[in-house]
C-alpha cells in the first residue's frame, strides 16, 4: 500500500466574472496529476517558479481544497478539509523558517500546539514528548523559553522540523526546506532530515528548485512544468538521461564547476501565460524539437524505459 496516492488531483483558481460576458475559465495552477509515494520513499518535486509545486503541496496538507481528484494516505481517502485530521497524517515544513514561527510566541508554545490540539496531551506528557523530539533534532531544551527572532535560519528550520515531527505524521511535505539557508547549514539540515526519516520511518515529499539537492536526497523525482507532470523517473537517471526536453534544459542550466558557461537557450524565453494557456504542449514555445502536433495535442505521460515516464511527443533518446 503506498503511503500517499494522488489521483487526478487538480486545482483551478477561478477568475472574477466580469460585469458583462461569461466568466473566464480560470487559472489551472495544477492540472490533473496522479502519482504514488511508497512508504519510506523520498519523492522529489522540481520545477521553476509558477509551475504549481506550492499549490500541490498546500492541497496535500489540506490548506487548499482541490478542485478535483482525491488524496489517499495509507489507503484512507482524505476528503474532508479539516486540517486537524490531515495534521496527524501529513505535516508541512515551510520554506522560510522565520516567518513560519509566530514572532510573539515562545518556542515552547509553538511546540505544544500540535500536541494539545491534535493529541489532547496533558502537560507532563507534552514536556516528555517535546524533550524527546528536541533530542532527535539536536536542539537544546533551553531554547524552549526563547522567541523565534533569537535563532539563526538553520536553528529556526530545525524548530520547524521539530514542530512537524510533534504531530507524529506519516508523511512530511518539505517545501524548499533549505533554500533560505546557507550552504554550510543546508547540509546539516538535509542530513538531519535523512536521519529522522530512518529513525521514524517517515515518507517525504521534497519540493525544491535546486536540482543538485533534490538529486542528492530523493529516490524518485517528478518534474513539473506549467502545472503538469512532464517527467517522472528515478533520481539517478532522470537528469543523466532525460526524456523530456524540459528536463534536459533544467539539467543543462544548473551551474556546475568545470562546465563552461553557455546559455542553453538564447531567446528571452518565458513561461507561458497562465491566463491565456497555449493549446497542446505548454513547453512547445521553448522547445527545439517542437512540431505541429505539439502545438495542437497535449501529450500524455507514457512509459519510456525502466521506471521513467515522460509527457512528450518527441522524447529524447535514452
Amino acid at each position: 500500500m503506498p503511503a500517499l496516492k494522488v489521483t487526478n488531483l487538480a486545482k483551478t483558481f477561478p477568475l472574477k466574472k466580469p460585469i458583462f460576458g461569461p466568466a473566464p475559465p480560470g487559472v489551472r495552477a495544477v492540472r490533473p496529476m496522479s502519482f504514488e509515494v511508497a512508504t519510506g520513499e523520498t519523492l522529489g518535486v522540481v520545477g521553476e517558479s509558477g509551475c504549481g509545486k506550492s499549490t500541490l503541496a498546500r492541497m496535500l496538507v489540506g490548506l487548499l481544497e482541490p478542485s478535483e481528484g482525491s488524496i489517499e494516505i495509507e489507503g484512507r481517502a482524505l476528503d474532508n478539509a479539516d486540517p486537524a485530521e490531515f495534521g496527524k497524517l501529513i505535516q508541512y515544513v515551510f520554506q522560510d523558517p522565520q516567518s513560519s514561527l509566530n514572532p510573539r510566541k515562545t518556542i515552547c508554545q509553538v511546540m505544544e500546539a500540535p500536541l494539545r490540539r491534535l493529541y489532547r496531551m496533558q502537560k507532563p506528557e507534552r514536556d516528555k514528548r517535546i524533550s524527546e523530539i528536541f533530542a532527535s533534532v539536536n536542539l537544546r531544551e533551553e531554547f524552549l523559553d526563547r522567541y523565534p527572532h533569537e535563532f539563526s535560519g538553520g536553528q529556526a528550520q530545525r524548530i520547524g522540523i521539530a514542530r512537524a515531527l510533534a504531530a507524529n505524521p506519516r508523511i512530511i511535505i518539505l517545501d524548499e526546506p533549505v533554500s533560505a539557508l546557507d550552504v554550510s547549514v543546508q547540509a546539516q539540515v538535509l542530513n538531519l532530515l535523512a536521519d529522522l526519516k530512518a529513525q521514524f520511518g517517515l515518507t517525504y515529499l521534497f519540493i525544491t528548485h535546486d536540482l543538485a539537492v533534490v538529486e542528492a536526497v530523493s529516490d524518485r523525482i517528478i518534474v513539473l512544468y506549467f502545472g503538469a507532470v512532464v517527467e517522472i523517473g528515478r533520481a539517478e537517471n532522470i537528469f543523466a538521461n532525460p526524456r523530456h526536453p524540459y528536463t534536459r534544459l533544467l539539467a543543462d542550466s544548473a551551474p556546475v564547476v568545470g562546465k563552461p558557461l553557455t546559455a542553453p537557450e538564447q531567446k528571452g524565453s518565458e513561461l507561458p501565460d497562465p491566463l491565456n494557456p497555449p493549446p497542446g504542449c505548454a513547453f512547445a514555445g521553448r522547445c527545439p524539437r517542437a512540431t505541429e502536433i505539439c502545438r495542437a495535442d497535449e501529450p500524455k505521460l507514457t512509459e519510456m524505459g525502466e521506471d521513467q515516464l515522460a509527457a512528450c511527443h518527441h522524447p529524447l533518446e535514452g
Binding site: S152, V183, S184, V185, A187, E215, A216, D219, A240, V256
Partner: peptide, 22 residues
Amino acid sequence: LIACVPELGGGRRALAAIPGLP
C-alpha cells in the same frame, strides 16, 4: 564549503556539513 555544495550528477548521498555556525 565546496564539499557542502551538492553537484548535479553525484547521485544520492549524504552531504558534507560544517558543524556549528558562523
